[in-house]
Design a protein around this nucleic acid. Structure first.
Lengths: 141, 141
DNA sequence: GTATCTGCAAAAGATTTGCAGCAAG
DNA sequence: CTTGCTGCAAATCTTTTGCAGATAC
């Protein structure tokens, strides 16, 4: 299945490319390049730069969606899922939860009409303090 | 006016801090640290690290809002405006337009209820192709 | 005066690139 | 076999940090 995706996109079907797609197919939440690489090296000899290169190519070929997060790191997810996710990050402990529904479709249609732009994507992440850190935190400014 | 803001926040009222606030008060669109610094050096001797430090402090003290953009750069705007902006970036020419209304308030309330997180902020940027680049572009995949 | 600010240069962290060797079609 | 893929190391880009000197209050 990942092989077919690759062939239809015109990219060669290499072990590493299949592996990256496979890892993301099993992820319940968008992952950073570092996380994907850490997972990939368990199965296959693969360098950091290859991971980055694959992620960039797969994003370019619209097999992946890339989200530039709120901490200088990019998060990747499969673009083939019926609806993409966004994430909510705890600014204290770094916990991440996913938001399965994306509320921006209607807005994008309006934006396109108002600006004349063809909208190709968006970046959305939320920051907050998770229930656990709220309990631990003494100050509550 | 920028002086009062600074005093009420507990930060010392230095020439550079006033300058940064002033530049952002006159900006029609969120600016990157680099743009702010480029503007600031026209008026005042100021180093890159100071610009970054000031932006971080002012954000920390809630005088500024920071948006981590879709290209590894952060965009800053005054937090004192009645309603904050988001931006739409042309992926071909780099043009940026502002979106004056933020559609996420209702969603954040629901998110807080559903996750137990206290929501402290969000990051949102759109990518697209501007009318001009659509005309110039031959391919339209 | 003293705690806070600032400039400079050097460090850090994420990502990209050059190049020589390897592998898919 | 030829074009595209990969690892390694070095480069790049944005942002952060250490430290000695300057400035606000």
């Amino acid at each position: 299945m990942t092989s077919k995706l690759l062939q239809s996109s015109g990219l060669r079907c290499t072990r590493r490319r299949k592996l990256v797609l496979d890892i993301l197919a099993h992820a319940k939440i968008p992952m950073t390049a570092e996380e994907i690489h850490a997972e990939a090296v368990k199965t296959e000899k693969i360098g950091f730069s290859t991971t980055y290169r694959l992620l960039a190519q797969l994003t370019e070929h619209r097999l992946l969606l890339k989200n530039d997060g709120c901490n200088g790191r990019a998060y990747y997810q499969l673009a083939t899922a019926p609806s993409h996710m966004h994430t909510l990050h705890c600014i204290l402990c770094g916990d991440v939860v996913s938001i399965d529904h994306c509320p921006l479709a209607a807005l994008e249609t309006r934006l396109a009409a108002e600006t004349g732009y063809r909208i190709t994507g968006h970046n959305l992440t939320f920051q907050g303090i998770c229930p656990n850190c709220q309990k631990l935190s003494i100050c509550d400014s």
